[in-house]
């Protein structure tokens, strides 16, 4: 059996390669941002004897009179209209609790889902009893944020055929700050897989479905075996996404696709090696920069 031995290479300091950040206002907790009282206090700050003090480590952002500090890594902060992927943690009276990497579990109310048998159907007591048949603990769903409650919890809905239960595929978890906000977060990539880049940092990879199953309201999962070629594409995409995330690259359809193309020179398992990751991510970075002009 061939054994591969590698020495741990010291990670290069990236700041030396890319040049240091350009005049950003970085603060750490306890730093005074301003002593001027004419400003409004935003997220990541607090006031103490007329001083505006940072409470997280991050970048200061000013919008007119409002000062906020954006932490570089934090839990998902939901906004109405965001696409999320989440896991059911609990089935309650008329609602499911969903873990969406948020500060509190999100809720999916029974009346906010498409039940089998058409859009306009009354939710009866029978539906309430059969809730666990639709979604049970541990199931993954894609959904949209419908509302944000005062304590920061999210209310979700799946009232479109795009959303619903997720069947066979791979879930990759990255920091929510790495997902670029786009018009659409559902993509059918030309390499033969579908990807959901959810705003909460959960990324769902699956084989592109052949035809849309209707009527089921997205609660019936296809349990046909997935072809080996599809599984290989999905594995490669997964490793590419982890590579991009480890180098803190923004994730969106183009960056994922470019990274996928850059990775084709390597075997799938090689994409877990640090040197290869650095190579393909550098190539992706270059290509994105060229494209921007």
């Amino acid at each position: 059996m061939a054994v591969e031995v590698r020495l741990p290479a010291a990670q290069k300091r990236v700041s030396e390669e890319l040049g240091t950040g350009s005049g950003l206002h970085l603060v750490t907790p306890g730093d005074t941002i301003t002593t001027d009282t004419g400003f409004m206090r935003g997220h990541g700050t607090y006031t103490e004897d007329d001083k505006l003090v940072a409470s997280v480590a991050g970048v200061v952002e000013r919008v007119n009179k409002l000062i906020c500090v954006r932490a570089l890594k934090a839990r998902y902060n939901g906004e109405v209209g965001d696409i999320v992927v989440g896991r059911i943690t609990e089935v309650q009276q008329k609602r499911w609790k969903v873990d969406t990497n948020s500060r509190l579990d999100s809720v999916l109310i029974l009346s906010a889902v498409n039940l089998p048998g058409g859009e306009l159907r009354r939710r009866s007591a029978k539906d309430e009893l059969a809730m666990r048949d639709y979604l049970q603990e541990g199931d993954l769903i894609s959904a949209e944020v419908q509302a944000v409650y005062s304590d920061g919890a999210l209310s979700l809905h799946t009232r479109s055929l795009k959303y619903g239960k997720l069947g066979q595929g791979v879930l990759v978890r990255v920091s929510p700050s790495l997902i670029k906000r786009r018009k659409t977060h559902f993509h059918n990539l030309p390499c033969g897989a579908s990807i959901i880049l959810a705003n909460n940092g959960f990324i769902w990879l699956c084989a592109t479905p052949k035809e849309m199953e209707e009527e089921a309201g997205g609660f019936i999962t296809n349990l046909e075996p997935v072809a080996l070629s599809d599984r290989e594409v999905i594995s490669r995409l997964r490793n590419c996404i982890l590579a991009l995330a480890s180098q803190k690259m923004l994730l969106y359809d183009t960056s994922v696709l470019y990274c996928y193309e850059a990775s084709l020179a390597h075997q799938i398992k090689e994409l877990l090696k640090v040197e290869v990751i650095e190579d393909i991510v550098m190539e992706t970075r270059q290509r994105l920069l060229e494209q921007e002009g």
């Binding site: 300091r13 890319l18 950040g21 970085l26 750490t28 570089l72 180098q247 923004l250």
Partner: peptide
């Protein structure tokens, strides 16, 4: 740590 991360994140912070 902050400096390193912001450099990596690059364009978005601008």
């Amino acid at each position: 740590h902050l400096q390193e991360l912001t450099t990596l994140l690059g364009d978005r912070t601008a």
